[in-house]
Write a protein that binds this DNA or RNA. Structure first.
Lengths: 232, 232
DNA sequence: CAGAAGGCTTGATCTAGATCAAGCCGAGCT
DNA sequence: AGCTCGGCTTGATCTAGATCAAGCCTTCTG
C-alpha cells in the first residue's frame, strides 16, 4: 500500500494507539481501493479473508434467504465491517455492496488476528470497535421493532438535522429510494410517510427538508439516546 | 464467592485459558446467585456494573420505548450477556429478566476491564465471546426479517429436534406462550402456526412434537447454517 | 428539441400478523 | 365431586405496510 495513505488510516481509533512496528506490519499486507457504486464486495457464506474499513462513501450490509433479501445495516465512515467474522475466522453472515463511490481499506484477517495477540492497545481498540458494532445493531433492531415507519422517519430527520448543524432547514444526503431502504420501508410508503409528517410541521421539497415546529415534531418522534444516539 | 463454585466457572470458555492469579482476582469480586422466574435483573439505561454469565435457566433480553416493548433475544446457558456494555462502560441498551429459575454469575465490570488489559488469553476469549454474541444477534435478525412466522416455527422445531437427539419425536422445553414470545409472535398465532405445519407432517400434543415426514418439513423450512447453526 | 428513462407520487388492493372476544380444557383446591 | 384459574385454541375483525398499477416530472441523450 502506498505510504501516502498511512497517516489518515493511522489516525483512526482502531489504529491510533498501537505500536508503530505493528502498524507497519499490518499495513504491509493491506491495501486501499476505490469502488464504484453497486459493487458487491463480499457475499454471505464466504470465508472472511479481509477486515474492511470504510474511509468514505457507504456500504449496505444485506442478507438473502429463499429468494428474499433484506438490508441489515448501512455502514458509514469511518468504521469497520465484518469484524466479528474476521475475529472468529467464521464465514460472513451478511453480504456487502457499495451504495455509492467508496474508499475502503482491506486488511488480511490473519494479520489482524496475529497483531491482536501481540499488541495490547490494538486488542483494546478492536474490542471497543466490536462492542460498538454490536450496540449499533441492537439500536437498529430496537428502532425497527419498536417504531412505526412514520416514527422511524421522524427520528431519522431529527438525527439528520443534528448532523447538519441543528438548523430548521437542511438537506437529505441520500436519494429517497435509498433512504426508504435504510429505514426499512418501500419508496411508496416513504412518500406517504413524508406526507404524514406534514401534520407535525415537516415540509419537503425534493431533498430539502424544513421543520417549522421543532417541539411538536420531537413530541411525536420521542427520540431516545438508547436508540438514536450513535456515540454511546 | 464460595470456592466450591470455582471449577465449574473456570471450565467456561471465557475463563479456561487465563492465568490462575487473574482468575482468582476476578472471582474475588464475583458472586453466583440463584434467581426465581420473572425477576428483572437489569434495566436499560442503567450503568453496566456487572458482567452476567448464565449458568442455568434462561434470561430474556427486551427493550421498551413509548409504552411498547419487544423481546430482543433469549440467553441460554452457558453464555454471557451485556458484554458489550461492560467492555465500553456504556449504559445497557436492553433490560433483562429471568424466564425461569436461573443461576447467574455476576462479575464487576471494572474487574473485567482491568484483567482484559493484563491477560492476553482472557482478552482473546472476551473478543471471541463478543463476536459470537454479535453473530447471534445477526442470525436472530435474519430469522425475523427473512422468514414468516410459519417458517420460523418450522426451523425452530428442526433445531429443537437436533438438540433433543434427532429423533422423530421430542418435547418442547418451554411452555407455548414463552415459545411464542421467543419466536416473535403471539400465542394465538403460534397456535395457528402449529396447525399450519400439520400439512408438513408435524403433530402436536401438549408439549410433545412428532415429525412424520422429515424430508417434507425440511423442504418447507429450508434451514440454513448462516441462520440456524449456533456454533458458527 | 423530442423522446426516453428513471425516480417520485398517488390511489387501489392485498396480506401477514395483531388484536379482540369467546369458549375450552386440564390441574389444583376446597 | 364441583370450582376456579390459567393457559390454549378458535373465529372474527383490524391494521401497518407491501404490492400493483398508473401517471408525473426532471434529467439525460440523440
Amino acid at each position: 500500500m502506498p505510504e501516502a495513505q498511512y497517516p489518515e488510516i493511522r489516525a483512526l481509533n482502531l489504529f491510533a494507539g498501537m505500536a508503530e512496528a505493528n502498524f507497519q506490519s499490518l499495513m504491509r499486507g493491506a491495501y486501499v481501493q476505490n469502488f464504484p457504486p453497486q459493487i458487491e464486495l463480499i457475499g454471505e457464506g464466504e470465508p472472511s479473508d479481509f477486515l474492511h474499513v470504510v474511509l468514505s462513501g457507504s456500504v449496505d450490509l444485506f442478507s438473502t434467504w429463499n429468494r428474499r433479501d433484506t438490508n441489515m445495516a448501512t455502514v458509514r465512515p469511518i468504521s469497520t465491517f465484518i469484524l466479528a467474522a474476521t475475529i472468529n475466522s467464521a464465514p460472513y453472515l451478511m453480504s456487502a455492496r457499495t451504495l455509492e463511490k467508496s474508499r475502503i481499506v482491506l486488511i488480511p484477517s490473519q494479520d489482524v488476528r496475529t497483531i491482536f495477540d501481540v499488541d495490547r492497545n490494538f486488542a483494546r481498540a478492536i474490542v471497543t470497535e466490536l462492542a460498538q458494532c454490536y450496540r449499533s445493531v441492537i439500536k437498529a433492531q430496537k428502532d425497527l421493532k419498536l417504531r412505526t415507519s412514520l416514527e422511524r422517519l421522524a427520528n431519522y430527520l431529527l438525527r439528520q438535522q443534528r448532523r447538519a448543524g441543528g438548523g430548521a432547514a437542511f438537506d437529505l444526503d441520500f436519494e429517497k429510494r435509498r433512504l426508504a431502504s435504510m429505514l426499512g420501508m418501500t419508496p411508496e410508503n416513504l412518500s406517504r410517510a413524508f406526507k404524514g409528517l406534514q401534520t407535525y410541521g415537516v415540509s419537503v421539497e425534493g431533498t430539502h427538508i424544513s421543520i417549522s415546529d421543532q417541539v411538536d415534531l420531537e413530541r411525536f418522534a420521542k427520540p431516545n439516546p438508547l436508540i438514536d444516539d450513535f456515540s454511546t
